[in-house]
Write a protein that binds this DNA or RNA. Structure first.
Lengths: 347, 347
DNA sequence: CTACCTCGGGAAAACGTTCTCCGGAAATTT
DNA sequence: AAATTTCCGGAGAACGTTTTCCCGAGGTAG
């Protein structure tokens, strides 16, 4: 009773293994009579196909590797969730790999997944530059879609939010609510989200007021940096602190409160990503929401449409890049100083 | 160049497939000369064993299924991370399944993982009662360890924090800092963490002051419920709100602030789990830290020591239950009303 | 009546490992 | 010196599918 195989079902149904396989996989028409008998037998014995054997024979494991920098980054869980659901809906399973924010670990994990013969990889690269080689190598072996962050031009298909558009939304909102002396707290390094957001800020701020001095400080995507950054900029008394993500913003908010600053009266604070804690901060954080569900759906779609590994490494197929529109979520942390409530404000 | 197999290596090394396998798997001593030749050939060709074929033949996929209720619950990511690292360190890969907090989905996911022939399952059950059948069935087929939440007595090995001890730490701390009229905001339902925490609260509160009336309200483990709960209890003016987890506590804190209550001066608030946002709340949340790394290590250890599925379903092996000691993390939300700072306070 | 399809079904060859036999050579024992 | 053990290595059978052949029966067309 330990393991019911095709042979057992065949024996019970009084036909050959091939026939059973055909009935169950629906791979070729089979006589109605036999089909019923087979299905009955399979049912009665509680047959469950061995996915491993199937994978070996058909050279497809029905498995997708999901590689991400750090599952503890609060932006990822909801993304993982959506991806898991999208893939499971197609009958594919998800092999998860956490890279500890380390490119070397990332390379190891990718190799392990390839050894396991994943059909495809979904990958959020740790670093735009230092992840490139491993990613390019992997992309040559299986369909691969980059998520959320890019990895150099032409390396692989990718899906991400339009960071520039998001930053523009923030700046526009701040300008519309009378903020005139914004200041940017970003992340250094070559991670594409970091780069795109700081470039977009610089461009947008300059467009709004070419005369204003640009005040920008760079650290990493952490709460600690948010706290530290405030100490570096508060002396200039900005009336808005634009942060490169919600973690930074949460840290900034905390420190500003400690310093006795009035948010949003004296200074507005904005984030990026709309992670769960954004709504819980006090005041609740105005931020840019990433369309997580669409991101996941689009990634799954790209995978499905990526014709399996080319038999001969022919002319490099052009990579596809999808940019999704973000949405501004206005909350208390950027309410107009005059106290007028924005209709879009969420509790 | 698409796929280097044992045969290719054997051909290149001038020996048989069996020998190559033996050298590479170190499964039987092989002549030094041949071994070198084989390794050289494997190296030169860039041979990588096909894990799928290996799995089929050796009846072990080197894969563990990780099934959890909702990856978006902020307590899980760090647990997932630790588990992933512990398992990858043993060369096992993690198949992730998210159940959307639904027992039916959970059953589906478990079945899918079993079809994929996972070597073992790590499972955080959605619900103590409604998950039981599926879990018991799975436990009969592969080694299975329950994490964080139980699933009825004798169903499977389990590892969890000692919720009673954690709740006792909280009550003791509150009593020591002069709180006399605590009130409990818990979660209804049969999830074991919910049950254990509310039972422990009731027991502990009664022990501290048998005369005091027990004030307890029950909802679920969400921020929204935390907010709503405050409206139900604030009229009784408790001097401490003990919450069943950090999400509830975060909601409670938020609502109390809206109501103009002074935390911690007028009322202390405590949580449970020590999720990342606990430290970010204002004031930072006093809570009970779960020893996540130990939890993961212990779970991995149980898996490793669980002798693979018994060939004959012999006498039910007694299940092992591990309870780990929690740690109280005192932060601002329960600072003594007199303003005296607790030495253990963390920023 | 012969020739040619179609249709349902079986035998058996893959897929890439691991592992059990087996056999010969060398080393050890009697 | 014969008998036994040890050591290396190869042939080939699994593992449980899918898929390619091939075959016979029945139908239709020439």
């Amino acid at each position: 009773m330990a393991e019911v195989t095709l042979r057992d079902v065949a024996r019970a149904a009084g036909c050959s293994v091939a026939t059973v396989s055909r009935v169950l996989a629906g791979t070729r028409p089979v006589g109605a009579e036999t089909a019923r008998a087979v299905r009955a037998a399979a049912d009665r014995l509680g047959y469950r196909p061995n996915e491993v054997a199937r994978a070996l024979r058909s050279r497809s494991t029905g498995t997708v590797g999901l590689v991400l920098p750090q599952i503890t980054n609060p932006f990822f869980p909801s993304l993982v969730r959506e991806l898991e659901h999208a893939l499971h809906a197609e009958g594919r399973a998800v092999l998860l790999a956490d890279c500890d924010d380390d490119p070397a670990t990332e390379a190891t994990r990718i190799a392990a997944l390839l050894d396991r013969r994943v059909d495809a990889l979904l990958l959020i690269p740790v670093d735009e530059r230092r992840s490139r080689d491993a990613v390019a190598a992997a992309a040559a072996r299986v369909p691969l879609v980059l998520l959320d962050r890019g990895c150099g031009p032409g390396v692989a298909d990718s899906v991400a939010v339009d960071n520039a558009a998001g930053m523009a939304l923030v700046l526009e909102h701040l300008a519309a609510t009378g903020r005139r002396r914004p200041c940017f707290v970003g992340a250094a390094g070559t991670a594409s989200a970091a780069v795109e957001r700081r470039v977009a800020y610089a461009a947008g701020a300059a467009a709004l007021d070419p005369a204003a001095p640009q005040r920008t400080v760079l650290g990493d995507f952490s709460v600690e940096w948010g706290r530290a950054a405030v100490d570096r900029i508060w002396s200039a008394r900005p009336d808005a602190v634009v942060c490169a993500n919600d973690l930074i913003a949460a840290g900034a908010l905390q420190r500003l409160r400690q310093l006795g600053a009035d948010v949003p009266g004296e200074v507005a604070v904005t984030g990026f990503d709309d992670v769960p804690l954004a709504g819980l901060a006090d005041p609740a954080l105005t931020t840019v929401r990433q369309p997580v569900a669409e991101l996941a759906a689009e990634a799954a779609r790209l995978l499905a449409h990526r014709p399996a590994a080319a038999p001969i490494p022919g002319p490099r197929r052009p990579v596809r890049t999808v940019r999704l529109a973000p949405e501004l979520v206005v909350r208390g942390s950027s309410a107009p100083a005059d106290g007028g409530s924005d209709p879009r404000t969420t509790p």
